[in-house]
Computed example of a mutant assay.
Amino acid sequence: MLDFSDIQIEDVVIHWVGNKGRDEGIFTSRSVTSVKEEDVKALLATYLLEPFAKTRVMSRFVHTSDLRFNEVYNYVSQIFSQPDTLLEQSINLVRHLYECSTHPRIKGGEFYMVYLKGVKLDGEIGSAIGIYRTENKETYLKVVEREGGYGVEADRGINIHALDKGCLVLDTERENGYRLFTVDAHGRAANEARYWREDFLSVDFVPDEGTITGQVLDMLTGFLKEGVPAQDAIKPAELRANTVQFFEQNDQFETARFESEVLKEPETIESFRAYRGEYESSTQMEAPPEAFTISKESVKAAKRRMRSVIKLDTSFTIYLRNLQSEVLERIERGEDAGKGLNYYKFYFKEES
């Protein structure tokens, strides 16, 4: 997983790129932007890095004939070798992006490049380069002080929680096309969005067992929290326990076997398939193979996140630390008709 807790924003370059089909051109900066205010740095870090914080979908640069002919790969490599060429290479990149921006629905907007230090991937610290494209701005109201009181004005700006397009390239595995992560607000199905990943970046997903296992476990965690068709919270807890057990006891994941051995009920399987389709679309996650080798390290990381919490109205919260079947069998859910309330009953041997 990515960790930005020790991130340092070294340099930022901002250009403007239009739609080539409308002959809008590009406008390039003459110097690197210096961001000194700590509060602005914090907001900028939120805007540029927050979308990548939870992603597990790792990619790499590719080319049909030779990786050296991938333009973004080449320019990024120059920056990693000589960080002081950020401005020069960013101009090369914005020109390349302009050549790819021909779809009639592509809007003009800012183009950012950022050189970062202190990025952690699975505990390893290194440098990274961020490449971003802004397409949409929002109208907002601001209160301004005037003589004798206050007034309200309209302005337009960027929502720091809504990045349009982004690519974070880590300085690792250069010979294999680096390791990188992408974001696209349009989703991978939109025709006008394909120019970002396919035409401009030219990247492909990295099908390693750790990434695939992590993706599937993240998806299952969401399903067990949001998509299980159950009337009480014990059923999701049982499924969590059985899911963890399945991944711990098997070396291979097979979708059909998981559905029959863990989900079992037709209604649950149907809900899982519907949730999986929606999840893959909303997160731009490439559909994982029906069978793959399970990464035990990814299982350990996911197990820590698969905690069960039962919230009862606004007054009580029950934390289930042990999800083993023999423990869950000691919990009983019922309904008190006289009081018109539901209840949980817990059986135990001794207090600790």
Rank of each mutant, 00 (worst) to 15 (best):
L163E: 11
G187M: 08
H186A: 15
D232P: 03
H161I: 00
L263E: 02
D199L: 06
F200G: 07
I234K: 12
R257C: 04
G149S: 10
E147T: 13
T255C: 05
L263G: 04
Y195S: 04
I158H: 09
L180S: 04
A230S: 15
H161D: 14
L224A: 04
Q252L: 14
P229Y: 04
A154N: 14
V169H: 06
G177D: 08
V262F: 02
E238Q: 12
L180T: 05
T172A: 10
F223G: 02
E173Q: 12
N191F: 12
Q245S: 15
T182A: 12
A193Q: 08
A230W: 08
R174K: 15
P207M: 13
T221V: 03
N191H: 11
E265M: 05
E209K: 14
R179T: 07
A256E: 15
N191V: 09
N191K: 11
R174Y: 07
F246H: 06
F223V: 03
E265Q: 13
N176D: 14
D218I: 00
Y178D: 01
V203E: 12
L141M: 13
K165T: 11
T255W: 05
K264Y: 11
L170Q: 10
D164H: 07
R188D: 15
A230E: 08
D218R: 02
D232E: 14
N250G: 02
